[in-house]
Design a protein around this nucleic acid. Structure first.
Length: 315
DNA sequence: CGGCAGGTGCGGA
DNA sequence: TCCGCACCTGCC
């Protein structure tokens, strides 16, 4: 069952649904003009297919929802609305475009990716599982931990000629033995965090419409109350899940190295200096601007490997 | 082998 | 409020 979505112009389909700087997860796949993912929504797992059916200035997406049982129209509409929020389809990026045009670094990048959205596509709980496996380790190990979680707790879903994994519900990790189970999956001390967060969410999920409506500072304080969320994870959540375009006030070591290259053509520049520079250049758009620059860099890296970047990510 | 990595919570000053 | 420390595991 399907319907048509109308993102606000300008819109960049492939930039929104494909994020080369994020490591691949088994719940989504992308090829030019087509995106598929699984979606756990309510008590049901759906298959989602989005197809580009428009242009940058006259955007349209053909959305198809797959399910084992019959779907009613209201159900499909609520899924469409949720996906529109997750992928930030209504975003007005016109003043961002204006800002980019007067910036030597962002300008050419924005031209290539005009209309690209944040586009994480996860629920809050799912994204917390991601930030948890990102903590204090290397990209390779984060990827391995997430694969193990999907293999053990995820479900395989076949639809539209493909097979993808779906995220597990929080309740799957909430039973008493879950922490021991998780340790066996080599997630280390993160087992405690994953278990505790799962218990919290299994008992009471968040009211996302309230959270989305909060000013950044209040949303920040609320999210910091979640066990396992600290200064490094908080801006991932604020940006990717809540779309606060200015959520960029701390910088992690690997990102510091990348910004040092991009902004100062050096191997390592002082973190405060980078934050100052980013603030001066892009103001309230600084996190979105950084996102554009990162995706552009990783996209170019994928086409034609960049040596220093390969050394940094060591995948 | 010891140190460290894309952090965080906790106890003690 | 700020600081030092433990923590699973894999890689150098």
């Amino acid at each position: 069952m399907g319907l048509s979505l109308r993102p606000a112009a300008p819109f960049h389909f492939d930039g929104t649904f494909c994020k080369p700087s994020h490591f691949p997860t088994p719940h989504r796949e992308h090829e030019s003009g087509t995106f598929r993912q699984t979606l756990r929504w309510g008590d049901t797992v759906y298959g989602i297919r989005a197809r580009n059916a428009g242009t940058t200035d006259a955007p349209a997406i053909d959305l198809t929802v797959f399910s084992e049982r019959d779907l009613d129209e209201g159900e499909v509409e609520s899924i469409a609305a949720e996906l529109s929020r997750r992928f930030d389809l209504a975003a007005d990026l016109r003043s961002f475009t204006e800002l980019a045009q007067s910036d030597d670094l962002l300008g050419p990048v924005e031209q290539r990716w005009r209309g690209m959205r944040v586009g994480a596509g996860y629920s809050l709980y799912e994204f917390l599982a991601i930030t948890c496996v990102l903590q204090n380790t290397t990209v390779r190990r984060s990827r391995d931990m997430l694969s193990a979680l999907f293999e053990h707790y995820g479900t395989r879903v076949r639809f539209d000629g493909t097979e993808l994994s779906a995220f597990w519900p929080a309740s799957a990790l909430a039973h008493d033995e879950a922490e021991q189970e998780l340790r066996a999956l080599k997630v280390g001390y993160r087992a405690k965090t994953l278990h505790r967060v799962a218990c919290d969410f299994a008992q009471r999920d968040w009211d996302m419409s309230t959270l989305r409506a909060l000013p950044r500072q209040e949303a920040r304080d609320k999210l910091l109350g979640i066990y396992g969320v600290g200064p490094a994870s908080i801006w991932y959540l604020l940006f990717e899940v809540l779309h606060h375009y200015d959520a960029f006030d701390t910088i992690s070591p690997w990102e510091q190295k990348i910004y040092s290259r991009l902004l100062f053509d050096s191997e390592l520049t002082d973190a405060d200096k980078i934050l100052q520079e980013v603030h001066n250049r892009w103001g309230d758009w600084r996190m979105l601007a950084s996102h554009y620059i990162f995706e552009d860099l990783f996209w170019r890296h994928r086409q034609d490997p960049i040596d220093w970047l390969r050394d940094l990510i060591r995948l």
